[in-house]
Simulated assay, not measured.
Amino acid sequence: MTFWDEIEQQALAARRKMVRSGELLGEDEFRERLRLSESQLARMLQRGDVFAIEVDGVAYLPALLATLGLDLRRLYSICRILVPAPPSCRLGYLSSRHANLGGISPLEALREERQYRLLRQMARAYAAEWVRTVVTIYVGSYEVEPRDIEPTLTAAHEVDPRVNLWMRAEDALLSGGYIQPCGPYATASEATVFVSRQPAGQAPPIPEARIAVSIVDGVAHANVVCHEVSTYKLDAIRVADEDIVGVVLHVVVAVRKLSL
């Protein structure tokens, strides 16, 4: 048995214990507590108001999400913010005390307006940690990301994946959170940009967009492909004698302005 198999077995044993203790409820019991219909619960799950945790192939919902006496409207707004995190981690976040909340739990922070506003801010930061947007730039033209050459630039930024794709890509290039190498960068007549989402852990990256950039006589031309289905060409952008990373930033900003 591998280390990760042992970790998974321990996690499963903990979830089974939560079912036995009533910390996790079956869907019928959860609906009964809140007097919900099946369709109402389905809509809440879809919106992210509540979330389910699977145990032995059965979906259970945290009992704390049906706690009468809590401000459930505020609680469900926090749940929606936490959607990028895995369900088990959302539960762990909600049920733990946090130093950045003054040593109290999110459930306690729901009671007072100032603490609730701080909780929303901290929950956004926590949710963003679970997915990075990665922008990779290669000199040359490529249909798929090459594996045998080093990129001219790799930039990554932790941000909620529900934020506009091009806002996330621009943030990655400008944030300074992770940029490698730091420059200076060469000029080039052609480049390919790949934008992807990188979930936390060992999950593979999720491709989101590709940009083919060419520069002729100080003018950049770009073809943008999103999700391999929609392709469009940007208007020409004058870039003078900028290096290739500066050119790509101009292109990403232009795409972002078109997408909003």
Score class of each variant (00 low, 15 high):
Leu72Lys: 11
Val251Asp: 04
Ile244Ser: 07
Gly140Arg: 13
Arg16Met: 07
Val195Ile: 15
Met44Leu: 13
Gly176Ile: 02
Val144Leu: 11
Ala236His: 02
Pro146Lys: 05
Arg120Val: 01
Leu153Ile: 14
Leu110Gln: 08
Thr136Pro: 12
Ala42Val: 03
Asp241Leu: 06
Tyr178Met: 13
Val193Cys: 13
Ser39Gln: 14
Asp243Val: 06
Gln202Asp: 15
Pro87Glu: 12
Leu12Ser: 09
Ala14Gly: 11
Leu91Tyr: 13
Val224Gly: 11
Tyr178Ile: 07
Pro207Ala: 06
Ala236Gly: 00
Val247Ile: 15
Gly103Met: 05
Leu12Pro: 04
Ile149His: 04
Thr136Phe: 10
Gln180Asp: 13
Tyr116Phe: 15
Arg210His: 07
Ala99Tyr: 09
Leu45Asp: 02
Ile137Glu: 11
Glu6Thr: 09
Gly183Asn: 13
Thr231Ala: 09
Pro62Arg: 04
Ala85Arg: 06
Asp217Cys: 00
Leu101Pro: 06
Ala186Ser: 15
Ile237Cys: 02
Gln115Met: 14
Asp171Ala: 15
Val131Glu: 13
Leu165Phe: 02
Arg15Ile: 00
Leu173Cys: 05
Asn223Ser: 09
Arg162Glu: 12
Arg132Leu: 09
Val248Asn: 11
Leu25Val: 01
Gly218Gln: 01
Pro87Ala: 08
Ser39Leu: 06
Gly103Ala: 12
Arg33Asp: 03
Glu108Thr: 13
Leu173Pro: 02
Pro161Leu: 07
Met122Glu: 15
Val195Leu: 08
Ser88His: 10
Thr187His: 07
Ala85Ser: 12
Asp148Asn: 09
Asp148Ile: 04
Leu36Pro: 07
Leu153Arg: 15
Leu94Pro: 10
Thr154Asp: 06
Tyr126Asn: 00
Gly201Ile: 03
Leu82Phe: 05
Arg256Phe: 02
Leu72Pro: 07
Arg210Gly: 04
Ala186Gln: 15
Ala236Val: 09
Ile215Gly: 04
Thr67Ile: 00
Ile53Ala: 05
Ser37Thr: 15
Gly26Lys: 07
Ile237Gly: 01
Gln115Leu: 14
Val247Tyr: 02
Val55Tyr: 05
Arg168Ala: 08
Ala222Phe: 02
Ala169Asn: 10
Met122Ser: 10
Leu174Pro: 01
Leu41Arg: 11
Pro184Lys: 10
Val248Leu: 03
Leu61Lys: 07
Leu61Thr: 01
Val253Met: 06
Arg162Thr: 03
Glu6Cys: 00
Val247Ala: 01
Ala240Pro: 00
Ala66Lys: 05
